[in-house]
């Protein structure tokens, strides 16, 4: 446990503690709209953290993470609606499904030397493949969608994930903290070193005795397993699933924007990214609505411009710069 906080300057620990404290009391201080926004922020922070394991740590660019969100969501929703299994047990099915999917994609790509952007294309192709499949699978609602019975908002049933937004908020917060701790541990472990070596230079990594194929597979499978929870959460929070939406490439892009803007490969980057991007985009939507401009696509153009600006002017993301300015960097 000590290792999790090793090397962090005191002020960083204090900042982290304060931030967590604010998040813990936030639901009682804000209105329903802000709370719903915070739930979405935490969702993206978590999903971004999961994606970051694969790209940020191990250097394998996935542009199809909506695949794992969608599969996780459908797996748990299926278990719940068809077999009456609670979402926590459903999560196991979801994790098994997404991990298997990640393994298939990873095997196909890495076995045959499909790397870099071609790997990214393959992840999109699989995501689209599965989307079309679900569109044509009537048992799970097909393109008409799969719906979960809507919750009674007055009582919170944690076991079945039925309840008010505040319950979902704390569930997601807990998962975000867990994911952060887990990723911190990963980075400092043998696995983390091997991944970073592979990310930086595969040939050199292999020459140092690292079985590159195996460790890339572990990265893909672990990342897809973690992402499964984001899907389960999505299903039970929104109560409806449409293949067209949940598997869409737009969703994948939304997931990866946070970590990239926040700081690829850093632990705090995905969180910073989610806290910056989601409120900005939502605020923009609100503003446009208020101004009476109701044109679809404006939000996405905004996303695109944000991404462009960050890629051109802040290639390492916001967090590394911020951490340096505030003296919150880790020391060796």
């Amino acid at each position: 446990m000590n290792m999790l906080f090793d090397g962090l300057p005191r002020r960083a620990l204090v900042a982290l503690g304060l931030f967590l404290a604010v998040l813990l009391v936030a639901p009682w201080l804000v209105n329903a709209y802000i709370l719903s926004l915070l739930v979405v922020v935490l969702y993206f922070a978590y999903a971004g953290q999961a994606w970051n394991v694969m790209m940020g740590f191990a250097g394998q660019l996935s542009l199809g993470h909506s695949l794992y969100v969608g599969l996780g969501a459908y797996a748990a929703a299926m278990m719940f609606t068809k077999f009456g299994v609670n979402p926590w047990v459903g999560l196991l099915v979801a994790v098994a499904t997404t991990t298997a999917m990640g393994a298939i994609i990873g095997f196909l790509a890495f076995r045959f030397g499909i790397g870099g952007v071609y790997f990214a294309i393959l992840t999109i192709a699989f995501s689209e493949f599965v989307r079309v499949g679900f569109d044509h699978w009537p048992w799970l609602g097909g393109s008409g969608g799969l719906f979960l019975p809507v919750a009674n908002l007055s009582s919170n049933d944690l076991l079945n994930l039925r309840g008010a937004p505040i319950m979902f908020y704390y569930v997601m917060l807990a998962m975000c903290v867990a994911a952060l701790g887990f990723c911190r541990w990963l980075l400092g472990s043998r696995l983390g070193y091997y991944w970073q070596a592979i990310r930086e230079n595969e040939d050199a990594a292999a020459a140092l005795g690292i079985p590159v194929f195996r460790y890339k597979m572990i990265a893909v499978m672990l990342s897809s397993a973690m992402t499964a929870f984001a899907g389960v959460f999505y299903a039970f929070y929104y109560n409806n699933l449409f293949p067209e939406q949940i598997f869409s490439m737009g969703r994948s892009i939304e997931i990866i924007l946070g970590p990239i803007i926040g700081g690829l490969g850093t632990l705090i980057g995905p969180i910073v990214g989610a806290f910056v991007l989601t409120p900005l985009a939502d605020g923009l939507s609100e503003l446009l609505q208020w101004a009476g401009i109701d044109v679809p696509g404006v939000k996405q153009v905004f996303y695109g411009i944000c991404l462009l600006l960050v890629v051109v002017f802040l290639p390492n993301g916001i967090w590394p710069m911020l951490a340096r300015r505030l003296g919150l960097e880790r020391e060796h």
Partner: peptide, 20 residues
Amino acid sequence: HTQFMLMVAVAIILTNSQLI
């Protein structure tokens, strides 16, 4: 991947500008 993200940004802007 940086080049790729640049082009993703261009793609997002193009698609949605066309939509608008």
